[in-house]
Design a protein around this nucleic acid. Sequence first.
DNA 1: TTAAGTGCAAAAGTTTTGCACCAAG
DNA 2: CTTGGTGCAAAACTTTTGCACTTAA
Lengths: 183, 183
Amino acid sequence: MVTDMALYSPASLRSELHQIGCRLTPQRETILKVFQNLPKGNHLSAEDLYTLLQERGEPISLSTVYRSLKLMTRMGILRELELAEGHKHYEINQPYPHHHHHLVCVQCNRTMEFINSSILRIGIKQAEKESLHLLDCQLTIHAVCPEALRRGWPSLLPSNWTCSRTLAGLGMVESVEASTPSA
Amino acid sequence: MVTDMALYSPASLRSELHQIGCRLTPQRETILKVFQNLPKGNHLSAEDLYTLLQERGEPISLSTVYRSLKLMTRMGILRELELAEGHKHYEINQPYPHHHHHLVCVQCNRTMEFINSSILRIGIKQAEKESLHLLDCQLTIHAVCPEALRRGWPSLLPSNWTCSRTLAGLGMVESVEASTPSA
DNA sequence: TTAAGTGCAAAAGTTTTGCACCAAG
DNA sequence: CTTGGTGCAAAACTTTTGCACTTAA
């Protein structure tokens, strides 16, 4: 899964950090490594990342996680995704051929990635026009899945309902009609 | 400024609400009216909207504001914007010719709108492909303004620094080099 | 009449910060 | 050394919720 991934070596990260008066710390290096090895299509919230590092026994605090995510996003190393889940998610900011966009079902929060190179082209042109330095450009499509529509979306669904699309994504496809509340 | 705006009359809002088992309340009508009359390019956070209504003497609670924003977003009447400011902003979801996208400076948070019809076309096609019902589709471009770059963005700037681009937007263009902290 | 909506206050999250200590360069 | 970074705990915010009371239809 993780293929042509050496976007940032520790050395190049160090040098980018130094350029702006920052230092390379073990924590920052660890975080970068996590994102570099994250399977394509995954993204982590601050909390996710913190938990994951804890489980691996990496010593890091939640504040440092937040601070690093913010810094690395501003540096253009990470991408901050605003999907429909209430907290931000992060992924590595992939270079041009792998650069992708998101389609989100606002009911079940399932996210699908897609690639479309004209979008980036539009973004580059627009940033140039305003003479800004481009960091990231992402198309987010909000949509509703057919199951939700069928059930009378938006308000008739229990808030913890999950559509079959999501269940399928989790590898548990059977009870599409079940809608079993569990909160 | 507010031109061809009668996207939703109270009656059409009522009927859309009824279709999903909801009611038209004075609060919802008021909120819709605010967004319909909002000058092009403006967007409000929940807090902004609440304050604005308070000032106008409209009786509404903050919870209702949140509840209405969520509902109207899910109905596709409003658009939830995730710009770079930590809280969500909302604007009316304009139909196809007025549909627009955003370019944001991550340093000064200034937001610029732009129109590009191919983006919507891409969004429609992608949603169709996954057989989802499209609600909204927005391209967000994150960038840094030249002033920030010149000053050694990202970390050397005081957190309350505002670039000349922003000052210009506020109609106070003089002291571009001042960077006067005020927090 | 009755199910949906509102307001209030409390709770639940998420993200930020002050400060003392630690460590990269 | 010196300045930036980290961890901890407290604080600050934004958003959600339970419940009793209203109100649209």
